[in-house]
C-alpha cells in the first residue's frame, strides 16, 4: 500500500465517520498489485517487431526495420518512439536490449510533476496527462533513466513516453510490444509473478544468466525487469542508480517545509518583539 492509497483510505474513513455511516463495514483494502514486463535479453533476437507494434499502437513513428540500419548505433527513446531496441556486442555475442520507460514503483517523474500530469496509476503504468501538463520538464530532469521526451518543435508540445499501453490494459489486453514479440522475450504479468519467474530462470540455468534481476531494486524497484547473460553495465544499463526510490531524495526537504512554517514565523515575531525598544513589557 503506498502513501497515496493510505491517504485515500484515511480520507474515505474520515468521510464515512463524518457522514455517520457504518465505520468498519468496508471490506479490508486489497493491495493493488503492479503489473510489469520481464525482458529476458537472452531470448531477444533483435527483430524489432515490438518497435513497429509500439509505433502502430500509439500513432508514432513505425520504423522500417528492414532498411533503416538503426541497430548500427545505440539509440535512445525520442518524441517519435517510445521504445527502441539496441544491440550491444559482448563476449557472449550480440545482445539486444529493449529500452523504454521502466515504470518505477516510486517514479521520480510523478513526484516531480507540479500538476500531477505524470501519474503512477494503481495498476502500475506511469502515464502522462496532457490536460494537466504545463510543460515544465521537471520530470525529464528528475527521471534517473532519462525517459520522458519533449516535443521541442511544437507550439503545443507533449511529453512522450511509454505508458505500458495503459489504455490496452484497461481493455484487458496486453501491451502491444509484448503481444508482438515472437520469441517470448517479453513477458507481461504482475510484478510478484515476474520476479518469481525471473528467479526461477536464474536458479534453473545458473550459467546462462548473471545472478541479478535489473529492476528488482534499482531506483526502488521498477515495473520493467531485465535478465541478462552478461553484466548489465555492458549492455547499456546504469548500475550506479542505487536502490533508494528517487522521491525519497526530496522527502526530508518537503517534510521540513511545514516544520519551518510552523516554527519560523513565531520565532521571528518573538525576535522582533524582543528587539522593539518601544514595547517594554517590564513596565
Amino acid at each position: 500500500m503506498d502513501r497515496r492509497d493510505f491517504l485515500k483510505t484515511t480520507a474515505a474513513v474520515g468521510a464515512t465517520a463524518l457522514t455517520g455511516k457504518k465505520l468498519f463495514a468496508k471490506e479490508p483494502l486489497k493491495p493493488e498489485e503492479f503489473v510489469g514486463v520481464l525482458v529476458d535479453t537472452t531470448r531477444c533476437i533483435g527483430c524489432r517487431e515490438c518497435e513497429m507494434a509500439c509505433g502502430e499502437a500509439h500513432d508514432l513513428l513505425v520504423p522500417d526495420v528492414q532498411n533503416d540500419n538503426a541497430l548500427e548505433q545505440v539509440r535512445t527513446t525520442s518524441d517519435e518512439q517510445w521504445m527502441v531496441i539496441n544491440r550491444f556486442e559482448t563476449d557472449k555475442g550480440d545482445v539486444f536490449v529493449k529500452k523504454q520507460c521502466m515504470h518505477c514503483m516510486q517514479p521520480a517523474c510523478a513526484a516531480a510533476c507540479p500538476t500531477e500530469a505524470m501519474k503512477k496509476t494503481k495498476e502500475g503504468p506511469v502515464i502522462w496527462r496532457g490536460d494537466k501538463c504545463m510543460g515544465c520538464r521537471f520530470c525529464m530532469v528528475s527521471c534517473p533513466f532519462d525517459i520522458p521526451k519533449f516535443e521541442y518543435d511544437e507550439w503545443n508540445p507533449k511529453i512522450e513516453k511509454c505508458t505500458l499501453c495503459f489504455d490496452r490494459l484497461q481493455d484487458g489486453e496486453r501491451p502491444a510490444c509484448v503481444e508482438a514479440c515472437p520469441t517470448d522475450a517479453l513477458i507481461f504479468g504482475t510484478r510478484t509473478k515476474l520476479i518469481e519467474d525471473a528467479r526461477k530462470r536464474i536458479y534453473n540455468n545458473p550459467d546462462d544468466y548473471v545472478h541479478h534481476i535489473y529492476g528488482e531494486h534499482e531506483a526502488g524497484g521498477t515495473g520493467y525487469l531485465y535478465l541478462s547473460a552478461v553484466p548489465f553495465e555492458q549492455i547499456g544499463f546504469r548500475t550506479d542508480l542505487g536502490t533508494t526510490p528517487y522521491p525519497e531524495y526530496t522527502k526530508e526537504f518537503l517534510y521540513s517545509v511545514p516544520l519551518v512554517l510552523f516554527g519560523l514565523p513565531a520565532l521571528l515575531f518573538g525576535f522582533s518583539h524582543l528587539t522593539d525598544k518601544e514595547t517594554d513589557d517590564s513596565e
Partner: peptide, 8 residues
Amino acid sequence: DLGRPWHI
C-alpha cells in the same frame, strides 16, 4: 520556458 504555459 514552459511548454504549455496556459496550464500554469
